[in-house]
């Protein structure tokens, strides 16, 4: 009588690479090459990456608001919002602030460096649902990064939307990101308003809190504005709490207000639990949440 158990090869059960559902995809990463590094401020660089395999590159699809996990072998792996338009597939823009081991290492790499990319992960901004509507994109500080993908999507489909506003607040003019694109955004009939906390001698725009601009925008809105408007908000917790409260006060329904939240993720796949808010996985059920869901998250944001 043979009592030897037969070895089961779990990968034999999965036939092809199917993101999110098969066992093969868990530790799978695309080899990607850094094609360009563009310093935007003292602490943030824009990285352009390209998935090396052309077929995988064109097959790579994502939605605005989603993130990827970027890995440098031996150095670390972390989540980053995709900053580019979905129409560019596996040619990705990532804006990265140098704050930890991985990002400080990235500050030193040059063109041609190979990294690992897995994803895309998480929820996204429902930009199709917003067709025919006004959009308010509101960003504080680094919060502009996850917004750049929906901004690009809106630009590419500008005629499908009504009034589009970007309200962007930063600490100082030196910390503004994507400055080289403001002209283009405006040319696409986007009402761009920028405000800084601490102006320098070159600054000619307004200074103060981002809510000042928002209040003006709401005050000058036409009749029925709130019923035809979606909002996308991203920024530090204090900022978006105040911003979202004003949007709600202005009559925009909570389920039309979307925020992108940030937590430390180790896996991005709903397994390590490090990003949980209360018992909600930021990596699976977020990072994009509607505000009604945020109100129901059982932990201080």
């Amino acid at each position: 009588m043979n009592h030897k158990l037969e070895f089961v090869d779990v990968l034999a059960e999965s036939h092809e690479y199917r993101p999110a559902t098969d066992l093969k995809s868990f530790e799978y990463s695309h080899a990607a090459e850094i094609t360009n590094v563009y310093p935007m401020t003292e602490h943030e660089h824009l990285y352009q990456l390209r998935i090396v395999d052309p077929e995988a590159r064109s097959r790579f699809t994502f939605r605005p608001g989603q993130f990827v996990m970027l890995e440098v072998p031996g150095i670390g792996e972390a989540p980053f919002s995709i900053s580019s338009s979905p129409s560019r597939h596996g040619d990705l823009d990532l804006c990265i602030r140098h704050v930890g081991t991985l990002t400080n290492f990235l500050a030193r790499v040059g063109r041609g460096t190979r990294v690992g990319i897995s994803g895309p992960f998480g929820t996204s901004f429902p930009v199709e649902k917003m067709y025919g509507q006004n959009i308010l994109l509101i960003a504080g500080g680094l919060g502009i990064v996850p917004l750049r993908s929906p901004i690009m999507t809106v630009l590419e489909n500008r005629s499908r939307y009504r009034k589009v506003d970007i309200i962007y607040g930063a600490r100082s003019p030196a910390e503004l990101l994507y400055t080289y694109e403001y002209e283009m955004w405006r040319k696409f009939d986007i009402n761009l308003n920028i405000i800084v906390d601490h102006p320098d001698e070159t600054w000619t725009g307004p200074s103060g809190l981002i809510t000042t601009i928002l209040d003006q925008r709401i005050a000058t809105a036409s009749e029925g504005f709130s019923g035809r408007t979606f909002a996308i908000v991203c920024g530090p917790p204090v900022m978006f709490k105040f911003v979202c409260q004003r949007l709600i006060d202005a009559g925009i329904p909570m389920q039309r207000i979307f925020v992108s939240l940030e937590r430390r993720m180790h896996c991005g796949r709903g397994k390590c639990c490090r990003c949980n808010i209360g018992s909600t996985y930021t990596c699976l059920e977020g990072p994009v949440f509607d505000y009604w869901t945020v109100m129901n998250l059982k932990e201080a944001i």
Partner: peptide, 10 residues
């Protein structure tokens, strides 16, 4: 769930 982990499954 989504993203089944092969290390555990194996």
């Amino acid at each position: 769930s989504v993203y089944p982990t092969p290390y555990y499954a194996a």
